[in-house]
Amino acid sequence: MINRLKILLRGDPAEIGQWLEESNLRWAAICTLVVLVGSGLYGFTVGLWRAPLQAFYTAIKFPLLIFLTCGGNVLLNGILAQVLGSGLSARQTSLAVLMSFALTSLILAALSPVSLFVLYNTPPLASQATLLGHSVILLAHVFFIACAGVIANHRLYRLLEKVSPSRAIARQVLGGWLGGNFLLGTQLAWVLRPFIGSPGLAIEFLRQDPLRGNFYEAVFRALRHLLFPT
C-alpha cells in the first residue's frame, strides 16, 4: 500500500495507468481510506480556529464533500470520458478521479502541521482582531487547497495523456471533468457549510437552511457589495 502511494505521488503514468485495468476494488478502497484520513485530518485543522466542535464537524464534512462530488458525478464523468473518446469506462473514470482526490488528500495531510502553525499564530476568536483571523485562515486554506488541487489535476492530466488516444482528447476530458466537479463541488460545499465557521454565527454541522441559495448567487452578491456598496 505504501509503495503504491509513493508511486501515486511520483505520478508515473505508465504504472498508474495499469491500475485502472485492475478489476478488484482493493486499490479503490485504499484511495477511499486515504481521502477519509488525509482530508479528515486537514479538515480538522480548518475548523479548529472556530472551536474544537467545529473542527470535529469539518473533519467529517471535508471527506464527505469529496465523496459526494465523486459520487454525484460518476455518471457524468463516465459519459464524458466515453463521448470524448478517451476509451475509459465509468469504473475507470471514477477510479482516476478518486486517485486524484487521494493525491490531493495526501498533500493536504502533509500540510496539516503548517496549517496548525498558521492557526497557532492567528488572532483567536475572542480577540479584537477576529475578522483578521478569519480572513487569514480563509486565505491560508485557499492557498493550500489550490496548491494541492493544481498538483493533483496536473497528475490526472498526465494519466489521461497516457491512456487517451491523443493530447487533445485528454485535455477535453480533463476540462469536462473539472467543469462538472467544480459545478457540483462548489454547490455541495455551499450546502455543507460552514467549514471554517463565521465568528458571529453558531457552531452547527449544517446551517439551518442548508439548501437555501447557492454558491454562485453568494459570489454575485459579494461582488455587487464590493463594487457597488450602496
Binding site: 509513493k6 505521488l9 498533500i107
Partner: peptide, 18 residues
C-alpha cells in the same frame, strides 16, 4: 524542521524522488 518535514517528503515524492 518538524513542521515542514512532512510536506518536504510529500513534495519530494511528487517531484519523482524515490
Amino acid at each position: 524542521v518538524l513542521i515542514c518535514l512532512p510536506s518536504l517528503y510529500i513534495f519530494s515524492c511528487l517531484g519523482g524522488s524515490e
